[in-house]
């Protein structure tokens, strides 16, 4: 292997391995499944990179902590609220009390249990949709940016068409025609959600595609998929993470919206179906706010936490958004650079 490529690849490994350390935000699998490991792939110091800086951002820490709380509550739902949460009890529309901390619904179900169990479905769908949409976006964006010409034209066209089709109406129409069920919900959300991430990732991949180390990799005869997933992809790990978080937010919100409209899987307990039933049973009109607030607040808190982490990632990777205005910084940052680490190694190269 020519020595030219080695220093050029150092920034790649630095940012590639920081992303997976963040909870739940695994990197797209292809970069890790490859068995061809020729160089030392994990510089121990570099590992602290993105996550280390992320932990210094108060916004990101609050976000990660909130996410962890919800994940734990969702996992512990069978312990904290044993039994079927949708069991119909005899105490209907009870206000919060010692026996029912969050009150009961019009059907006499315990709202706390419904909220805890709802977290499981909502979080799972959100993360599955986020992962799938990001994966498609990564593959489409990378392939378009790497191969260029006709491949890029076709992929960009498809992406832009999907971006342009109005999301929620398409969601409603698709959900109306397809058989109801959890798989349909996920499928519909992925179909309507992947295009945005593909566009962002393509733009980023395109700017990395023009760098010298990619040219060096092509000259040294590396295969296309290897250059795409092990040379280019690791350099845009922060952008991938940003789009992943955005996709998860989209997934959770859109699932709730779909289920609130009664188009989701109404047999599953999720935050969306909780709100659907609360609204159907006229909880608000009768003043039973406790049937309504917990699920909505949970969705908002999770989305807020994800947005905070995203904000943190943005600040860490885009120095211009950090702190006060710094004039002189503009020249260095106006170049498309994936991470600060990449920028540093690039300058020293």
């Amino acid at each position: 292997m020519p020595s030219v490529t080695d220093p050029a690849l150092a920034p790649a490994s630095a940012s590639a391995l920081t992303a997976p350390a963040a909870p739940g935000a695994g990197p797209p699998a292809p970069s890790r499944t490859s068995s061809v490991a020729q160089r030392s792939w994990v510089p121990a110091v570099a590992r602290g990179g993105l996550l280390g800086s992320l932990l210094r951002s108060p916004k990101a820490v609050v976000g990660l902590a909130l996410l962890a709380v919800f994940a734990i509550l969702a996992l512990l739902a069978p312990v904290l609220a044993p039994g079927d949460p949708s069991t119909i009890g005899d105490l209907a529309s009870e206000a919060p009390s010692a026996s029912h901390w969050l009150g009961t619904t019009a059907k006499g179900q315990d709202v706390l249990a419904l909220t805890l169990w709802g977290a499981r479905s909502s979080l799972a769908v959100g993360f599955v949709v986020g992962t799938a949409a990001t994966l498609i976006g990564v593959v489409v964006g990378l392939a378009g940016a790497y191969f260029g010409s006709v491949v890029d034209d076709v992929l960009s066209l498809v992406t832009n068409v999907f971006l342009l089709l109005p999301g929620l109406p398409l969601l409603v129409v698709l959900a109306a025609f397809l058989p109801p069920g959890a798989a349909t919900v996920v499928l519909v959300l992925v179909v309507t959600g992947w295009a945005g991430s593909a566009r962002v990732l393509r733009a980023q991949a395109l700017s990395i595609r023009g760098k010298d180390f990619v040219a060096a990799a092509i000259v040294s005869g590396e295969r296309a998929w290897r250059i795409m997933f092990r040379e280019i992809l690791p350099n845009m790990a922060s952008v991938v993470m940003g789009t992943f978080l955005a996709c998860v937010i989209f997934g959770i919100g859109a699932q709730a919206g779909l289920e609130f409209l009664g188009l989701g899987d109404s047999s599953v307990v999720s935050w969306g179906t909780n709100l659907y039933w609360a609204s159907n049973d006229g909880a608000l009109m009768s003043g039973a706010w406790w049937a309504f607030v917990p699920s909505g607040l949970s969705i908002a808190l999770v989305a807020f936490a994800l947005a905070l982490v995203n904000y943190g990632v943005d600040e860490v990777t885009n120095p211009r958004l950090r702190g006060r205005r710094r004039r002189k910084a503009s020249r260095a940052t106006s170049r498309p650079v994936a991470t600060p680490q990449a920028a540093v190694t690039e300058v020293t190269r």
């Binding site: 609204s279 608000l284 009109m285 989305a303 947005a307």
Partner: peptide, 25 residues
Amino acid sequence: PPVLVFVGSFPYFWLAMGALYLFGV
């Protein structure tokens, strides 16, 4: 910005129903 991001995290329909309940009902 944090306040607006937080408000923006609520599901559209949830805020709408809250407003309907508060200002309407």
